[in-house]
Design a protein around this nucleic acid. Structure first.
Lengths: 366, 366
DNA sequence: ATTATCATTGAGACCGGTCTCAAGCAATAA
DNA sequence: TTATTGCTTGAGACCGGTCTCAATGATAAT
């Protein structure tokens, strides 16, 4: 009666069995839809169940079967619409296969991620989909895998951890984006990413522990190298973890004596902030600064100009990992798969030749 | 060993007890952190637990305690960033109170909503937060409430269903937004909403079964009435359920002989589509059409012009319902509360006097 | 020395399902 | 008629925890 009642009494199989005048085992058989029962008794039990408004207790069911029907998902940041779409892809796929999803946010913090994984394991999820925020400390993921629970990685691969993984062709995408900028005449190009670590100063790839970021940087540098862009003209900027941080970083970047003429943003949240800063400084895109961002966020089509983006099929990414995971949950034993989904670049209006292209060449001479 | 193993054997309290040389009850006491145990034994058990890498089975724990530590959330559409923020508010608040969240999407379809509620009840969630997609068919919500499980409503009130509810001041917000448009000189104003039903033609409020929509329409009409806007100039348009539908609706609306000079959009997804259509038709905002939307979506600041919005504190909304629910989960018995959170209108650049204001007056004469 | 008190620990029921195994019973075969 | 087979049904163990209650032993009080 009272909502503060600590235990809500619900109708159980035993109650139904009593009402139908059969044993608990028989009632369980029809209610749980297993085994074999005569039609007459089945009818009696179902009638009693309807009468009493019986609702199976999934918890108890999971206890005995060992299966919870839940897939745990740990994602970096749900507010980032890239993950929003991915999660939607996961949920839809999971639901249509009869699984539920329980979602956790790591805020890209390894400790939060670890805690989330622990909680989900405690809830006895059948499998896990994780976007690892770091590739150095993956003991918790190794534990999951070792415990026999299927694990699949989304968006970020872990080089020396061989499990089902679905990512996009980050290296190639970054390279093509960079090539577009270079072809447009840019030499001083910055790549801004959310990854961060003590010092905030990029030195070399050895510091980067997130595979997707690493690959993107590699692609970016490869394109620069083949085009003969000198190392001091290609900037790699870290630490765009919050809008505020991104704003500061961008201001600082654009205030340099030789500011970059083009920026590649590693996600749309960063790009949005860059866009705002540029406008705030009364500069114009693409005349004063060219911009390309990862993820075709909806806002990128309504700005003036619309933004050139690297379209990552986020929904499909989510759908694909989930399919991989579910196949394994169904008992499929096969070597881990690493699927790389191709991206496409949607060229819109945010790339143009650098404003002072000629003067900039002169200057670089003197 | 094999991942296709149907049952993953995990370490249980009994295993730990055996290893520590104590009874199951004693091991359970230290592992479950209840009762009282001597320091020495506690140390032994903890050591054994660490040794065996014991992880409590939350499922079993929930079975006996009757509490799952999970809050079920059923929301209209996660892809809508309004709900995204709200969900984030819910998750953060829930987590910091030690609860987990399991999320379901109703896609605004009553049948999906019912199924989701059933599943969540089956999972024995401790309480539910729902954004009811309809107010006619709420038997499933009544069931939840009757079962003794706390239920709280988010964003949409149900007039004759008295439970904890958190909404925004929809009526007032719509009224103020309309007043802004009227003050700017508009007379032909359209209100576009996602709600739909057979016929798609708005006739009267009796058709509207979603409280928030109803209140907004009331506010809209109240403002029109006091300003003396005749009924044939204020348009209420339903059925903007998908981007495609919104696009069609908007095109049709703007192609009328006397098209509205201003539109109020009931959410930012609709507004985005309207914005795209207007640009597609080579019309300009605000010169050719003024636009105000509910929800301060991030893209509304980066368009040209930026969009005037009704800022609904979505995160706070989520936080507030969750607090209400948790207080009830903790046993607080009090009459249901209905909290109405105030909104504010952020005036940006999407409202201007109608283009042919004078000519339009002339025309209305002839 | 004896009894009362208190702190610990152990035994076992319980939560609500699933599932194994044996018993009951009718139909069929010998 | 009796043995065999097959289909239903019931009894009860089990999953991994929590929790009640009784038993134990040590300490304090008489």
């Amino acid at each position: 009666m009272n909502s503060s009642n600590p235990r809500i009494h619900s109708v159980t199989v035993a109650d139904v069995a009593r009402a139908a005048g059969v044993s608990k085992a028989t009632a369980a058989r029809v209610l749980g839809n297993y085994g074999v029962v005569s039609e007459k008794i089945r009818g009696d039990v179902l009638a009693a169940a309807r009468q009493l408004d019986y609702r199976p207790n999934e918890l108890a069911r999971s206890m005995t079967t060992g299966r919870s029907g839940i897939i745990g998902v740990v994602v970096g940041d749900i507010e980032n619409s890239f993950f929003g779409y991915a999660v939607r892809g996961i949920s839809d796929t999971a639901r249509s296969a009869g699984f539920n999803v329980i979602l956790a946010n790591s805020s890209e913090q390894i400790e939060v991620e670890k805690a989330a994984v622990r909680v989900l394991i405690g809830k006895r999820v059948d499998g896990l989909i994780v976007t690892p925020s770091e590739s150095r400390d993956i003991s918790h993921l190794r534990d999951v895998h070792r415990s026999g629970r299927p694990l699949a990685l989304l968006d970020r691969a872990l080089p020396d951890f061989d499990v089902d993984t679905v990512t996009v062709d980050d290296r190639n995408a970054a390279q093509r984006a960079t090539e577009i900028l270079i072809a447009s005449g840019h030499r001083r190009i910055a790549y801004i990413t959310a990854v961060d670590f003590a010092g905030h100063e990029y030195k070399d790839l050895g510091q980067i522990y997130t595979s997707s970021v690493r690959e993107r940087i590699e692609g970016f540098m490869a394109a620069c190298d083949t085009a003969g862009v000198p190392p001091w003209d290609r900037l790699i900027v870290l630490g765009a973890t919050t809008p505020q941080a991104t704003s500061n970083i961008t201001h600082k970047l654009l205030s340099r004596p030789n500011p970059p003429t083009a920026i590649i943003a590693s996600d749309s949240v960063i790009a949005l902030e860059i866009f705002k800063v540029v406008r705030q400084r009364s500069q114009r895109i693409p005349e004063d600064l060219s911009l390309i961002t990862f993820h075709d966020a909806d806002w990128t089509t309504v700005t003036s100009p619309p933004i050139t983006v690297i379209d990552q099929p986020a929904y499909r990414l989510g759908k694909t990992v989930t399919e991989l995971l579910i196949r394994r949950l169904k008992g499929e034993a096969r070597p881990p798969e690493r699927i790389i989904v191709p991206t496409s670049i949607i060229e819109r209006g945010s790339v143009a030749p650098p404003a002072g292209q000629d003067r900039s060449r002169d200057r670089s001479k003197g």
